[in-house]
Design a protein around this nucleic acid. Structure first.
Lengths: 242, 242
DNA sequence: AGAATAGTGTCTTTTAGACAGTATGGG
DNA sequence: CCCATACTGTCTAAAAGACACTATTCT
């Protein structure tokens, strides 16, 4: 390529968001129903194009989340998930999308926004299994997001991001069980969580109730990395043999 | 934004490559010397713009590596490292760059290519420490690449990518020691490596020599994930107390 | 009391880390 | 011979996993 006459091709840049939460002990992902072509009427991840050439990507991500799903969450931590850039992934031309992952406790019901005809939570398994069809290459993006969350549960304190500001250790255990799709022994789970440095901090003189003995409440600790990590190998729990 | 008149802004898309290798027991990173503005004469990661609107990103990465550093490596595994998209990171306008990471055994000396005035290996520590200045935000990209490699050593068989087709376990140990900047006990290291499933496979009736007893040669095994993982905690080795 | 969940203790197996000691080459 | 490196074995401490048992609430 000769140096002065050539100028690089340009592409359209978009962001997509994989927002995960737990509902009824199942991992759910936030989907919108597209209100515009292409794929109008299909479900898709919230996301969209930069609105101007100088918009930072994280700003665009937050803006789309609020515009399309009506969700404005302060202190939402978005983690870069990957770049999706296959030529042909979008019929409008070369669209390069940066996907972000966030994990939240039970969020308010999303409401359809400007470009979206609807918004709601869908079980992640139904998206991965294909029972819920999603536009573009969003099924793969969801799969990558779930896989990232699975891995991060082992070595980081991500699990607390699925819980509210305070939580019981059973609630935390249900996060692991839902995301990993395993059953864990609650007794060993308690020991491991409490031993991990800075993972959870007990909240003074407080407790919640459902049925059975009330449980101590905890909040997320300062530790981000888990040491020792939560082993994923299994330790299936079938209940006591009486 | 009104639906029909608006069209999304476009950006220039680039790729950058963090190629790591081991030389004299130190992690080195491949840098080129820029032959064109901006930052002409400065060192930078190999990389550049897509050459046409439909070029896949991985193709662009391989092309730049060959054009700028004269390195054509078949079966070079490039891993996506991240997206660098800060407005203002490039004086030419909004340039979004996707960085890729690769780890290679001792490679042939790179040769300057079309757009590069020079190419060579630089100790990664000198880039991170600022003694070697690099263009754009490439110092951060290098830092992210090194950090990724550090983490991957624990849970994947990445270490073998630093070695040739066959290697001794001391060579493999030197990879961990260089990347993690620790000293490991060779005896425990041998046990752990050989226990990890599919990490290394002994090569039949072969051996290398330097000084001391000749060592068994190994090749990379089929396993990609390391189970159990290599613990990074330390286990410093100071030599025997006699 | 009985059911249900919370939490503790204890035992066994596995793994990490320290390090003695043996094996096998080169000077 | 000595030296250096390659490897094997053994011990100890920590952690994982199985599971008995106690605690505290609700109905």
């Amino acid at each position: 390529m000769d140096s002065d006459s050539w100028s690089p091709p340009v592409v359209m840049l978009a962001v997509d968001l994989v927002i995960l939460t737990l509902r009824r002990s199942q991992v759910h992902v936030l989907l919108i129903e597209r209100g515009v072509e292409p794929f109008r009427g299909h479900r898709a991840l919230p996301g969209g194009f930069l609105c101007d050439r100088d918009e930072p990507l994280l700003d665009a991500a937050r803006r789309e989340l609020s515009e399309e799903a009506g969700l404005v969450v302060d202190s939402l931590h978005l983690e870069e998930l990957g770049v999706y850039a296959d030529p042909g992934r979008d019929p409008r031309g070369r669209v390069v999308s940066v996907a972000y992952l966030a994990v939240r406790p039970r969020l308010p019901e999303p409401t359809a926004g400007t470009d979206a005809a609807g918004a709601g939570w869908e079980p992640a398994a139904r998206v991965l299994g294909g029972e819920v069809a999603v536009a573009f290459d969003h099924r793969r993006i969801v799969a990558d997001g779930i896989e990232r969350a699975r891995r991060k549960l082992e070595h980081s304190a991500l699990a607390t991001a699925f819980c509210g500001p305070v939580f019981t250790l059973s609630e935390l255990q249900r996060v692991y069980e839902a995301v990993w799709d395993v059953r864990l022994d609650p007794r060993n789970f308690y020991r491991k969580v409490r031993r991990a440095d800075g993972f959870v901090v007990p909240v003074e003189s407080s407790r919640a109730t459902d049925t059975g003995r009330p449980a101590q409440l905890f909040r997320a600790g300062p530790g981000r990395a888990l040491n020792p990590p939560m082993a994923r190998s299994g330790a299936a729990y079938e209940g006591e043999t009486r």
